[in-house]
Design a protein around this nucleic acid. Structure first.
Lengths: 356, 356
DNA sequence: GTGAAAGCGCTAACAT
DNA sequence: ATGTTAGCGCTTTCAC
């Protein structure tokens, strides 16, 4: 089914069909228009996006590069973004970078070769130099979950929740509950968002005149990303914090998957949140379902997805819209946080000194 | 950067570059080849997948249509499938059908227009007639999570776990623990996989000479898909089963999200799995992290993804490989199931008659 | 061993 | 109001 078939069936030239297809239908007889429309309907004709894209140079899809869409946070993001893109007639090419720079670069280049001119990149590192070549070619890059870094405002569009505020809110929530020894659990702090969340945590402590204690800040040091799952890291981090001679009574985790891992660790030693309070980040679909339901920092995902697609379309049309943007997070209080208890910590293994 | 630029830089014709690109490099001087390769490297040339696809008719991507990639099960599937596809040089176009027939059809047609000739369709309904037109055009359709239906063997490739066996395993696990009143919770049973799981449940009961009790089988009757999230339905289903004058001591749920919702319901009435045993299906990434960790039926996702891509590639090359396939599930025993307790059920609300 | 030519399906000047 | 033409970037006979 090509445009030629339609043209033949309607007794017009291909260009006339094309004209109709491209919004130039007013300047033709109502009768011809009807004939063409009928032919299209009868033949079930759909113009080839491939040919169209080749001819016009207009992209037919946007690229989406995320660490792993198996992670519920990125799954939600992919879902919302696809829905927004579709509303604008754009498809979504999905790529899982596994947080690997080389893959990220390779993916972006293949996307470019596929005619993609705009990609949404998830969880970005401070430097985007590995994508310089694509950027030079004219790729529009929207870095999601990444706040503006120095001079890159003009090269990249940054879209992020206010991670500093989020980290601060999480920590102040715990402080206001009465906690004073508050831990922080994160994987490698190579990403901008993680650093900001940690900074927010420190800022909240400072406000309460608490000095930051390195012991309480657990950072995965096994080198690089991707070797362990987020929940495993949260699990490991919590176990190690509990082993401190003076463990925290509450922890802020870098995201909900870490938080769930941390809660699991707690259970293994015979405790249970909020015996140690745990707060996550993201408010993934499972946060309210977990036991106990997770207190967390919610990102306005829907609004972010809408903004992302809007801004990309604007950039594509040369319109310089708002571009970079930081959105406000909100605290969602649930049962994984509570005032500190005076109950002593059980020593591991749990059965030797069970909680309560 | 087009093939022409490379040709010019290497002082050859475009066709010679093309020949090298397409594995016809042996029949040219080592010297020319070197010149071309150097030119390509220097210019950072990548052939346009769009132009190539238009010219050869070969697809550059496969389509993936799932109910919602925000669901962790489909997120995992998308992740694995993308990884497999990439190994074969194929990209993945992501579509969220929201379980809506019209969207499903529209998506598949847009995919076809994009040059896609193979799509993986998640969670299929018994009838695939809404896709007839695409099928007639020659689309290769792989229905995932759907076992062969009647005569469609020759139109569609079906790939699924053995849902009957899975439902049976889940139920027998509970039976062997001593449960005799076993509930079943599911959304609309319009999909093949759900019916099979339910049939497996009934088969296990029959083996123990237990007659199926309609009371114990909770099916969402709010009409159609998508109006409520899976976990909400699991939640609702569990609450209603608990309201029976003789509630079940264990339930099989249609998948892990339902199971997590069911566990939440249990907590709300002051119980906790395994006070009522709960078994899920899929073994999503959160199953081991939940509290209690969820007993569930695992699907061999990795193997299925590999098979899916392999079979699609074979079909594309005209090779008629194994095509439809059913894979074996495995039971993963965790703490959400246990022998029935003799403890009486609390009456709601929980505080009026707390558990224990 | 290398290149000229045609064409995939479509669009957009530019005729008529 | 409609059609002719050229060409997007690539591949593939078929000549030389």
């Amino acid at each position: 089914m090509t445009i030629k078939d339609v043209a033949r069936a309607a007794n017009v030239s291909p260009s006339t069909v094309s004209n109709l297809l491209n919004g130039r239908g007013e300047r033709m007889t109502a009768e011809t228009r009807a004939r063409i429309e009928q032919a299209m309907a009868e033949l079930g004709y759909r113009p080839s996006r491939v040919a169209r894209s080749l001819r016009t140079g207009q992209p037919t899809a946007i690229g989406l590069v995320v660490p792993s869409v198996a992670n519920p946070f990125w799954g939600s993001w992919a879902h919302l973004l696809e829905a927004e893109a579709m509303r604008h007639g754009q498809q979504v090419l999905l790529c899982n970078s596994e947080r690997d720079l080389d893959r990220e670069r390779a993916y972006v280049e293949e996307l470019w070769a596929s005619g993609v001119r705009a990609v949404v990149l998830g969880s970005s590192l401070p430097s985007l130099h590995h994508l310089d070549s694509a950027l030079r070619d004219g790729l529009t890059l929207l870095a999601f979950d990444r706040e503006v870094q120095g001079d890159d405002e003009d090269r990249v569009i940054n879209l992020s929740v206010d991670n500093f505020a989020g980290g601060r809110m999480a920590t102040k929530h715990l402080l206001s509950l009465g906690h004073r020894r508050i831990g922080f659990i994160t994987g490698a702090t190579a990403t901008v968002s993680r650093r900001r969340r940690l900074a927010g945590y420190e800022s909240a402590l400072a406000e309460y005149r608490l000095s930051r204690s390195d012991d309480l800040i657990w950072v995965d040091d096994t080198g690089g990303f991707g070797d362990a799952s987020p929940s495993e890291l949260g699990h490991r981090g919590m176990l190690e914090l509990l082993d401190l001679r003076d463990p925290p009574t509450a922890v802020v985790t870098i995201n909900d998957m870490y938080a769930l891992g941390a809660c699991l660790a707690l259970r293994e030693v015979g405790m249970d949140a909020p015996a140690v309070s745990v707060v996550g980040f993201d408010d993934i679909v499972l946060a309210p379902l977990s036991n106990p339901p997770l207190t967390t920092i919610r990102q306005p995902m829907q609004a972010m997805a809408a903004h992302a697609v809007q801004v990309l379309r604007d950039a594509e049309h040369g319109r310089v819209s708002s571009r970079s943007m930081v959105m406000a997070p909100t605290l969602v209080g649930r049962e994984s946080t509570a005032a500190p208890t005076s109950a002593p910590y059980p020593r591991r293994p749990a059965h030797e000194a069970p909680a309560h």
